[in-house]
Simulated assay, not measured.
Amino acid sequence: MSVFTGDFTLGTSGNTDVTDITSQVCGLVSLSGITNGIVLVYVPGSTAAITTMEYEPGLVRDLKAALERFAPEDITYFHNERWHDGNGHSHIRASFIGQSESFPLINRELLLGTWQQIILVDLDNRPRTRKVFVQIYGQ
């Protein structure tokens, strides 16, 4: 078995910025030389998340609206009272989505559904530079 670790960096605008990172992940899969295994996609931090969706404008808007209903920005968060940074909602949203996803790698191809893309969601309330790690375990 082999392990390959790669990463890439991207700038985000914050405020539930949704970015399709499928091509970057697939590029690292190609570089790895691994044929079959598991691909882990991970973003460090407590205000960003990794998930999948059909990346199209209507669904991106729907996701943003759903997250606003789930953890509204304009309610009281104890985190904000302590740190005064206004991103309590960002932490809650990221906690529920999660910072990583794993995918099967079969015959050098990432197993994704026809309309499924891998996305990074930057939930912080300001622009950020995010580093995404891709670790592949297999043969």
Rank of each mutant, 00 (worst) to 15 (best):
M1F: 06
M1T: 13
T5E: 01
G6K: 06
G6H: 04
D7P: 00
T9K: 14
T9D: 04
G11I: 01
G11F: 05
T12V: 09
T12Y: 07
S13D: 12
G14P: 01
G14K: 02
T16H: 04
D17A: 14
D20T: 11
D20R: 07
I21T: 00
T22W: 00
T22G: 01
S23H: 10
S23E: 15
V25A: 02
V25Q: 05
V25C: 03
C26P: 00
C26M: 06
C26R: 09
G27F: 04
G27P: 07
G27I: 07
L28Y: 07
S30D: 05
L31R: 11
S32Q: 05
G33K: 04
G33T: 06
G33A: 05
G33W: 02
I38F: 09
Y42A: 08
P44S: 07
S46Q: 08
A48L: 11
A49R: 08
I50G: 02
T52R: 06
E54Q: 12
E54L: 05
G58D: 03
L63P: 02
L63I: 15
A65M: 13
A66V: 14
R69A: 12
F70N: 03
F70Q: 08
A71E: 06
A71T: 09
P72I: 12
Y77T: 09
F78R: 13
H79A: 10
N80R: 03
N80E: 13
N80F: 09
R82Y: 02
W83P: 03
W83T: 06
D85R: 12
D85Y: 14
N87W: 10
N87I: 11
G88P: 06
H89S: 14
S90I: 11
H91S: 08
I92R: 06
I92V: 15
R93P: 00
A94V: 11
S95T: 13
S95P: 04
F96K: 08
I97D: 00
Q99I: 15
S100T: 04
S100Q: 03
F103K: 13
P104V: 04
R108N: 14
R108L: 05
R108H: 14
E109F: 06
L112A: 08
L112H: 12
L112K: 08
G113K: 11
G113F: 09
T114D: 14
W115K: 06
Q116E: 15
Q117S: 15
Q117A: 11
I118G: 00
I119N: 02
L120R: 09
V121Q: 02
V121W: 00
D124E: 10
N125I: 02
R126Q: 13
P127E: 01
T129Q: 11
T129W: 00
T129G: 09
V134C: 02
Q135R: 09
Q135C: 09
Q135V: 13
G138W: 04
G138Q: 09
Q139E: 15
Q139G: 10
